[in-house]
Design a protein around this nucleic acid. Structure first.
Lengths: 346, 346
DNA sequence: AGCGGTAACGTTAGCGCTAACATGTGGATT
DNA sequence: AATCCACATGTTAGCGCTAACGTTACCGCT
């Protein structure tokens, strides 16, 4: 007689199989894998042995369905290729791994509609929390998140209304700080190379902070160029954006110093200056934003703002985990430190 | 009288709720969301309206459990910060999104033990397939994969025994090609700056291919340095590896040309050369590997091998999807093209 | 002896969905 | 008019696990 249903074709050993083999109930097996301290050492050992022998790997889909918790986080970023972003992702990954969470990730190419789709796709998997980039989202995204009641952390910006929690830094302040540094160095005619993607609060804030500082110093604050980007979904225009940015600034009458919305733009400016035989900083001072790895390496060193993406990502994951697990949270809006890093370029 | 179980606290609308509201059976709602063409247009509309009204979002955990398919892929990479790697991840992401798959990703820091842990953590979520980096894995990883019967694609290397499928390119051949180019340019004393992480087949293959070419040309093939890395889990040593690599080569008697295991090392070499007042290529020729974005931008342009990470990632996802969906696969081992890109540095 | 308490298990009742099969309906076909 | 068939929908039986509660054995205590 065959009591087994025909269905059991190739698949996995189940808790039930392990329970039979070990001569215990299904629930005891569950406890061994989920809450080992609730089982006596002898039983635990026996169950684990049988589990290993049968190649048992717990099915979290089933566990998640039964428990209503998934230990899964969804992360939405504009681009997977942005290396500064990679630091914050690594920070999240490390904190999440530490707490036994896993994550799904997707990129939106800076499109708010793509973001809404991504959020819905994630929610279908019932994650325990979400990380979004920036504080500007579509109505549909807001509706989905409201309906879900999920913990959400927004990263990189703390400007603007936040959904639930946010980590970032004061972009506007930081933009002002590096501009004031250039001013204090005595550079008078200062140009600004903006980020190629319009509508991003964090880049607007940096720029506005910098321009305000220029105005307050009585300097021109209208030498602003934005590299043309026909392909805004790609970050690959970043160095080239600096190249075309410097070209535009020179066409517009030249500058003594260039402030860039990101280090990659600044490196592009430095490369272009090198090509034109302009010395940095003697002929042209350059400052960036982000303290990407290359900033310390490129001669003569790029003066920039260090933004601590890794720490920010870690903090984002940390807040999310606290909220999920019902632990107290110091503050819903966490600004990580930034720091002016002075190097040879300005 | 309260027929509802107390459990139904805050949660989500379920298919059952939508079915009641729309006056159809649960199964019809399921069809509307999973296989719309099996439902009449009128019914479909009604169900979707009620679904929207109730804020219904299908619970894939439940669906996956019932169907045994998850439309989820696990991707294991050594590092999330490696920008060339990011291209291949983007390629996978784009192909997967196109086919409505999502992915989890984790980094191992080049540790095979961490890889095994990651693979088990993924398998607990019953993905439909896995992507691993490289062809060298721990016994535990092999056992897990064998037990799972899951489709697996290994990327970046096609050397060595493969588990199921692989995409990459001929690292050895490519290493030989760029070395022969340097030789043909007439450079005689050629040094090699290796990758800081030992034991990676793809980097060993590049180096061996290059050194063979040098030997065949009757040149010295023993001017090989490996940047010391106290922190092999981080890629952040990459530019700096080039810096220390050039220092070591100069200490060892100097070279006319440097061949690097990656573009980032090559850029580090170029920066160090600039600092020392050595002109590239007049005093020192430099060649890299990978054609990272910066290779085209840094003056005078970095001669390198273009490896098409994006296409490789796309191909990996494509093969995986084909296997999952039972479609035919041309070949289990797919080598994408690489190309020598000649620029000003060598 | 009788009591309560606790550790270590077991039993029950689902979680929300889908595969597989069953049923009903309205033509087209003969 | 009987038959067949395709289409649209419903019914049944789980998928593999966990929360919640129930049971048992054994301990120390009065």
């Amino acid at each position: 007689m065959n009591h087994d249903p025909v269905k059991r074709l190739p698949g996995w050993a189940t808790m039930s199989d392990v329970a039979h083999a070990a001569g215990v109930s299904l629930m005891t097996v569950s406890r061994v894998y989920k809450n080992p301290s609730a089982v006596s050492a002898a039983t635990r050992e026996r169950v684990l042995n049988e589990g290993d022998r049968l190649g048992f790997v717990p099915n979290m889909l089933a566990g998640n369905l039964a428990s209503g918790r998934s230990a899964m986080i969804g992360i939405v970023v504009p681009s997977l290729r942005n290396s500064n972003n990679a630091n914050s992702i690594q920070g999240m990954a490390d904190r999440l791994r530490q707490a036994s969470y896993q994550f799904m990730i997707t990129n939106t190419g800076y499109s708010l509609d793509a973001e809404a789709l991504a959020v819905e796709a994630f929610i279908r998997r019932r994650p325990d929390g979400l990380v979004l980039t920036g504080t500007r989202h579509s109505d549909e995204t807001y509706a989905l998140l409201r309906g879900s009641g999920l913990p959400v952390v927004e990263v990189w910006e703390t400007e603007g209304p936040i959904i639930d929690m946010a980590t970032g830094f004061r972009n506007r302040e930081a933009g002002g700080e590096i501009a004031r540094y250039l001013i204090a160095q005595g550079y008078d005619r200062i140009g600004y190379v903006d980020y190629p993607v319009p509508g991003l609060r964090r880049y607007e804030a940096r720029r506005d902070g910098a321009l305000d500082a220029l105005r307050q110093a009585g300097l021109r604050a209208d030498i602003v160029v934005s590299p043309l980007s026909t392909d805004v979904t790609e970050d690959t225009s970043s160095f080239r954006g600096g190249t075309s940015g410097l070209q535009q600034l020179l066409d517009a009458g030249g500058v003594r110093a260039v402030l860039c919305a990101s280090d990659l733009l600044a490196v592009g400016v430095m490369f272009e200056a090198q090509r034109r035989g302009m010395r940095v900083p003697e002929d042209l001072a350059v400052a960036g934003f982000g303290d990407f790895e290359i900033a310390a390496e490129i001669p003569p060193g790029l003066t920039t703002i260090r933004t601590q993406g890794y720490q920010m990502g870690w903090a984002a994951a940390d807040m999310l985990i606290s909220r999920i697990e019902g632990l107290p949270i110091d503050t819903e809006i966490k600004n990580v430190d930034y720091a002016l890093v002075k190097r040879g370029s300005a």
